[in-house]
């Protein structure tokens, strides 16, 4: 997977580009899973907006060189061991999990906009409104933090 390259590449810009590749791979999985609308939104939001934001910050801060100081080798080793142990635990616990059989009949139209919109505006109306407030708060906060100095 490209995800490993995100973590391992020294140059932050290469990391961002590998992350974009990972996101495209995930969008491909969404298409395979009949979630076409979600795949389109995923590409627009992640590859289009969030990654551009990352690249913009990296260029703005002039970080496009591997200035990262060397970490202690034991620290790196322990990080790798901890992550590996977590993977072992996750795989070991999920390998023998009994999957509930699909109760609903398979419906290929679940990922289409019509069904998603019906669910979003019928069952999840309040969380939708709260999400709009959250985005407004995040926007105000980002502008406030980005200002040179707060009087």
């Amino acid at each position: 997977m490209f995800g490993l390259m995100v973590v391992l590449s020294k140059n932050p810009i290469h990391s961002v580009l590998y992350l974009v590749l990972t996101f495209f791979a995930i969008a491909g999985h969404y298409v395979l899973l009949n979630a076409q609308f979600l795949a389109a939104v995923h590409i627009i939001v992640y590859a289009g907006a969030i990654m551009v934001l990352f690249l913009f910050v990296i260029m703005l801060l002039n970080l496009n060189k591997d200035t990262e100081p060397h970490k202690n080798i034991w620290l790196k080793l322990s990080a790798a061991v901890a992550a590996g142990l977590m993977l072992v635990v996750l795989v070991g616990s999920l390998k023998n999990a009994e999957m509930a059989a699909a109760t609903n009949a398979f419906n290929p139209n679940v990922g289409l906009i019509e069904n998603l919109g019906k669910t979003l505006f019928a069952e999840f109306l309040l969380p939708f409104e709260v999400a709009s407030l959250l985005l407004l708060g995040a926007m105000v906060g980002a502008v406030l933090l980005g200002k040179k100095s707060i009087k």
């Binding site: 899973l33 009949n34 979630a35 979600l38 939104v41 995923h42 939001v45 992640y46 907006a49 969030i50 934001l53 990352f54 699909a102 109760t103 609903n104 009949a105 398979f106 419906n107 679940v110 990922g111 069904n115 998603l116 019906k118 669910t119 979003l120 069952e123 999840f124 969380p127 999400a131 959250l134 985005l135 708060g137 995040a138 926007m139 906060g141 980002a142």
Partner: peptide, 24 residues
């Protein structure tokens, strides 16, 4: 998709919104 339930995909929308706010 496995359970043919669109609630999961709506959750993904909310996670995307939260992720965008968090990154900003």
């Amino acid at each position: 998709t496995y359970l043919s339930d669109s609630a999961g995909q709506v959750f993904v929308f909310f996670i995307m919104a939260v992720a965008a706010a968090e990154v900003a």
